[in-house]
């Protein structure tokens, strides 16, 4: 944490504050998506915003992700600053052509003529027994695409600062939230602040093993680090905060200090964010490693419904503790 604050607010309130502040600041910003207006947000993120900003700027859509994602991109090409809410990133798959072909490549294909200053945001990762179609962690899939930025906050403080940066960004940003964290409370100062992209946050300092993570699993890493500390292993937990750009420098600096690295990522292991971090660590710090990099990802299976099976599939503190012990030759 970089700021001292006494006020505690929910993750969803932090997101709402970020959007509302930016909408007050810039009339080109609008929010569009399913149930964002009259319903007050499927997850109450946009609660009260219709009342403040009116129906011209808080806009309900039909269930047409491909259509309204494309609408947002067209509006961004003309200089507006859309925030497009996906109720779940799982539903963004039906908008793949718009969000992967058009948003990130328009500037390049038009030879620098038409940029796409747009934010797509919504819930990412397992929501809790939703089955495979609703449990997508899209960061593995989408971080393969050049031209976009991916932000994935783990705390209300980071969520607010990163979302404000996302809305002001002249390029497309995919903003990955988590339904499981929307009610989490954390300190958020009253005064305005922004968090730059590509700047990781060391959520816990340590000397024995580097743990890198993104989004919700950061909390599992902190839980694991707490338990490991009781056993005398001091882990350094790095919250990447953005995947693109990736703050590899902070990660390398830590690995050079600890000599060990575990990457925790809720996407699937094959071609994952964890794989990319591991590859970059090998490229940049091979000689500083005293063991191979260990990855903790979701298991390489479709997300199951059963509570037991789902828990078995997802990253959790137990898996992280095991990986750290293996990485540091304690197991």
């Amino acid at each position: 944490m970089t700021a001292v604050a006494t006020r505690q607010i929910q993750f969803r309130e932090a997101l709402r504050e970020a959007m509302s502040e930016e909408m007050r600041r810039d009339p080109r910003v609008f929010l569009m998506g399913e149930e964002v207006a009259q319903y007050q947000g499927a997850y109450k993120v946009s609660q009260g915003m219709l009342e403040e900003f009116g129906p011209r700027r808080i806009i309900d859509t039909p269930i047409s992700e491909n259509g309204f994602a494309g609408l947002g991109i067209g509006a961004a090409m003309m200089g507006l600053r859309p925030i497009i809410e996906f109720m779940s990133w799982s539903f963004s798959l039906v908008a793949a052509d718009q969000i992967l072909n058009n948003a990130p490549k328009m500037l390049y294909m038009s030879g620098g003529q038409f940029g796409c200053p747009i934010v797509f945001r919504g819930n990412d990762g397992a929501g809790g027994q939703l089955g495979s179609t609703h449990s997508w962690a899209v960061e593995g899939l989408f971080s393969n695409v050049p031209g976009l930025r991916i932000a994935i906050p783990s705390t209300p403080y980071d969520a607010k600062g990163l979302l404000k940066t996302a809305i002001r960004c002249d390029d497309p940003v995919f903003f990955l939230e988590s339904e499981r964290m929307l009610g989490n409370k954390g300190p958020v100062p009253e005064e305005e602040y922004l968090i730059a992209f590509g700047v990781a946050d060391i959520k816990r300092a340590g000397t024995d093993c580097t743990i890198v993570s993104f989004g919700r699993p950061v909390h599992f890493c902190l839980e694991a680090a707490e338990k490991l500390a009781a056993e005398g292993i001091e882990c350094e937990v790095i919250d990447g905060r953005t995947i693109r750009p990736l703050d590899i420098d902070t990660i390398i600096e830590s690995v050079k200090k600890t000599g060990y690295c575990v990457v925790v990522d809720q996407s699937w292991p094959f071609g994952s964010v964890a794989s990319e971090v591991a590859a970059q660590v090998y490229e940049r710090a091979m000689d500083y490693l005293d063991n191979r990099v260990y990855r903790v990802c979701s298991d390489d299976v479709p997300a199951p419904y059963s509570k037991v099976l789902e828990q078995a599939m997802l990253p959790h503190a137990g898996k992280i503790i095991e990986a750290v012990k293996k990485a540091t030759y304690l197991a």
Partner: peptide, 26 residues
Amino acid sequence: YGGHAIVGGQTPLGVGLAFATRYENE
């Protein structure tokens, strides 16, 4: 606003352009 090569993919963009003109007015 372009030449778009995925069949039909330009039509949501066209609606977005129309949205933006109305937004600019209103």
